[in-house]
Design a protein around this nucleic acid. Sequence first.
RNA 1: AGACCCGUAGCUCAGCUGGUUAGAGCGCUGUCUUGACAUGGCAGAGGUCGGUGGUUCAAGUCCACUCGGGUCUACCA
Length: 933
Amino acid sequence: MPNKSPYLPKDIEESIYHEWEQTGVFSPSDKVNTFSLMIPPPNVTGTLHMGHGFQNAIMDCLVRFKKMQGYSTLWQVGTDHAGIATEMVVERLLAKEGISKTNLGRKKFIEKVWDWKHQSGDTITQQLRRLGGSLDWENERFTCDDKYTEAVQHAFIELFDAGLIYQGYRLVNWDPKLQTSLSDLEVINEERDGKIWTIRYAIENSDTYVEVATTRPETLFGDMALAVNPEDSRYSHVIGKRAIIPTANRSVPIIEDSYVDSAFGTGVVKITPGHDFHDYEVGQRHGLHLNDSGEAMTGETSMFLPISIMDKNACLHGEIPNEFKGLERFQARKLLLEKLGSMKMLVAEKDHRINIPIGDRTNEILEPLLTKQWYVDAKTLALPAIKAVKNNEIKFVPQNWEKTYFQWMDNIQDWCISRQLWWGHRIPIWFDENENAYAGTSESHVRQKYRIDGALRQEEDVLDTWFSSSLWTFATLGWPKKTERLELFHPTSTLVTGFDIIFFWVARMIMMTIYFMKEIPFKEIFITGLIRDENGQKMSKSKGNILDPIDLIDGITLEKLIEKRTFGLMQPQLEEKIIAATRKQFPNGIDSYGTDALRFTFYSLAAPGRDINFDIGRIGGFKNFCNKLWNAMHFIDFQIEKHDFEWNLEANAFMHPLNSWMHKQIIEASQLIEDHIRNYRFDLASVTLYELVWSKYCDWYIELSKNLLTEAQKEQQKLLITGLIVNLEDIVKLAHPFMPFITEKIHRKLRAIQGKDQTVFLVNTSMPSLREPVIKDNGFINDAIQIISSIRTIRSELELDNQISLALNVPQDISNEALKDMNALKAPLARMCGVENLIQQELDQSTHAINLLISGVKYQLIFPDNFNFDKIVESLRDKKIKIVEQIDLIESKLNNQNFITKAPQDVVTNQQQKLIQLKKENQYLEESINKYS
RNA sequence: AGACCCGUAGCUCAGCUGGUUAGAGCGCUGUCUUGACAUGGCAGAGGUCGGUGGUUCAAGUCCACUCGGGUCUACCA
C-alpha cells in the first residue's frame, strides 16, 4: 500500500508559498504580451478582512490564469499609508502611555508612526501570502516610501503650476475631534432624531416679528440675513427691512431668494453662511458682508465675506455675547434656548428627523467651518475621465456601475486635498512673507525655481491619502521617471475593486492618470460585491460578526474567536450579545479549511453585481472537494503500486477510448472556464471545474476504469493508468488558478511518477486548452453512462438486491464497432449496475425484460425468470403519465399554426424531433406495461 | 427626491441576447462500510420562479404597475 496521507491543507500549503516566493516565480517573465494588475493597496497597518480575501482571490486567479495562457504577468503589490486611520491608531496607542500628539511634537510623532509601521506593517502582506497571492514582491511599493513620495510631490507641483490646484478660504467639513478637514466623501450623512425650534426675530423699527425655524439655533450668532421666497405673499412686506437677532445686539437684512421653500417651516430661513453650505451659496449670491460698523449688509457677489462664530474645537468665539464665548456648540445651544425661552422669543420646539454629518473615521458630528484649504480643480480633470468611460476605453463590469460613476462625475465638486494631520505627504508649498505660495520639492528648490531670498515657511498640512493613491497605477511603476516597467505594464489590464471606493479611488485614478500619463489607467474595472455575514449584515466590529479569512484557513477555537471579537470594543455593552451570538453560530469554533477551500468558496459565490452573504456552510463542501481531488491522486498512487506501473506510453495515452473521452471532457471544460474567466464569471468557472473533477473524473472516469484495471490486459492497464495521470495533470493545471496549493502538490507527485523535473511550478506551465486537441469521438462512453444511470435508477426503484444480476440486450441494428465498444465495458457494467451479461438477440415473449431508450435506440434490460414485476409496472405507469403530458404539450405547440410560422425553424425542428423521441419512449413504456400488467 | 440592486427548492445562490422536462452546493429521506475518498458511493423527495396586468406563437427571462428587502447620491433651514 502507498502511504496514505489524508488531505491536510496545513501540511501542503505551508512550504509551497515560500518556494514560489524564493524562486521569484511571480515576477514578470518577459517583455512582450503583458498583462498587469495593481493591487488596491491595503492599509499598511491593517489586517486582512473577508473583502480583501475575496478580491485578492479573484486577482490571483486572473493573474495565474493569464500567466498560464502565455502572458507576461505583473501583479503589483503595495500598501497605503492611510493617513487618518493610522494617525488615529498611533494617537490612541500613545494615549495609553499618557502621551499626547501635541506634547510629542510633529517630528517625534512621525517617528512613532514609522515605528508602528515597522512593527505591524508586514502583517497584512504576510496574510496576502497565506492566500497564495502571486504578487511581485521584488517590487513592493508603499505610498510613503521615498520613490513614491517623489511621484506625489511631482504630481502636486505639476498640477499647481498648471493652475489646477489652488488655495481657497471656504466652508469645509471639519472634524473637531481630529482637528482636520475632510472631503465630502468622508462624510456620512446619518438620519437621527433631532428637534426643530421656531425662534422669533423682531423687525427693526416696528413691533412685529417674523418666526424662523432652525435645527441649529446656536449658529444664530453667525446670521447675516433672513430669507424668504420672493413668491411668498405672507412676507412681501418685510423684504428689504431688517430683523434683530435675539440675544445678539445686531440686525440683519431680510432678503428674497428662491432657495427658500415657503411650504417648509415658517417660510423664513436664517442665513448663516459661515456654518451652512446652502447658506454659504445664498450669502454669496447676495454679497453678504459686514460693513465698517459691523452691520450685516447685502452687496455685490465679490463683497461676500462670511463670518465664523466657531473655532476649530467647535466652541463659540468671535463677536458674540460674552457668556457664550468658549462654550462648546451643544452647551451653547442649551444656554441659548434657555435665554430665548425667558425672553419669550422661543415659539416652538418640535421633534424632527435630521441628517447629521458624521466623520466616517471618528463618528464625530462634523462642523461646517470656514478655513483655508487646498483644492484640486476636479471639474477640469473630470471631463476627459468621463469621456474615457463614455467611449468605452474603460469598461465597468458589471456595466451598470458606470451610471454611478457618471452620476458623481457629472456633478463633481472641487476636491479638498489638504488635511490638518501630520502623517502623510506634507504639501510641497512654501509661503513668502506676503503669503504668496510657491510649489517645489524642497525649500532650496523653491528658492532656486522662483529666485527668492526672503523668509520662506512650509505649508503645515498634509495631502489627503487618496491624492497619493490616485497615482497608484503609474507611480508604482516608477513615474515620473520613464522606466521600462512603466512602458511595459501601463495602462494596466484590469482593476478589481469594490463599489464603495468608485468615487474615492477609481474615479480619481482615472482623472489623474489621464492627466499625467495621457492614457487610461486600466481597461476594465471589475466591481465586486461586498462580503456580508450569512444573514446579509455588513461585517463590523460593533456587530461582532467579523470573520477573519486566516481563521477560516487555520481554524480557531470558540474561546479565541470570542476573545478576538470582543477585544477593543468601542461599545462594551455589546459584549454579551456578541458572545452569545458567536457561541450559537460556532459552538465548536471554526474548523481549519485551508486556503484552497476558502478561495474556491469565494469563486463559487462571486456572481456579478450582488453582495455576497458568506455562508460558512459552503466552505465545508469545498474542503470536501479538495479532499476529492486529493484522493484522485491517491487512487493513481494506488494503481501504480499495484500494477508495477512504468511510464512509457504517454504518446499513446489517448488511444484508449476512456482516456480520450476524459480528455475531451477536460478540453470542453477548459474552453468554458476560459470564457467564464474572460467574463469575470468566477462562479460559473468554479461550477464547471467542480463538475469536471467530481462528476466527470471521479464518478465516471475512475469508476469506469476500475474494473478494466483489474481485468484488462497488462498493456491496457498501463494505457489506462497513463491516461489517468495525463488527464489529472491537465485538470490540476486548469484548477491551479483557483486552488494553487493542492494542485501544485499533486502536480509534483504526477511529475515524480513521470520521472520529470519536480521543480517546475504549475504557474509556469500552459493551460491544457493550448495543447493540440486529441479528440476521438467516444459517443458510446456517454451512452454507457446513460445506460448505467438508467439501470441504477430502476434497481433502486425496485429495491433490487445487489445479488440479483441482470442482462442487457443490445439492439440488433447496432454497429459492430459499437458492440465491440460495449463489450469492452462489460466489466464496469457489471460492477456499476449489476449487468452481468450482454446479449444481442431477438427476445421471445417469455423473457422478463423492460425497454430502455438510450440515444434513440432501444435496449432491453433482462430480469431473472422468477422476478415479480408488480412494482415496476407501477413506476412505469408514473413515467408514462409524465411522458404523455409532455407529448400533449408539444403536440399542442406543433398544432398551433402561429408557432409553426412564427417560431424560428430550428426551434420547430427541435420540437418535432423531441416529439418523435417521446412517442418512441411512450411506445416502449406501453409495451413493457402491457406485457406485465 | 433621484438612481441602482435583489426577491427562484428548507438555506445560500446560478439560470447568457425570451424557445428542450427551471439547475447547483449545503441540508433532508432511503440505502451501502466494496481496496482513492464516510471529507465517501448510489438513488430520491423538494420550487411554477414576490403579486397583478400586459407584449409575444412562446416569459423565471421583456414592459407597466404593485408589495417586500437593500445600497448609493442629493436633501427643506
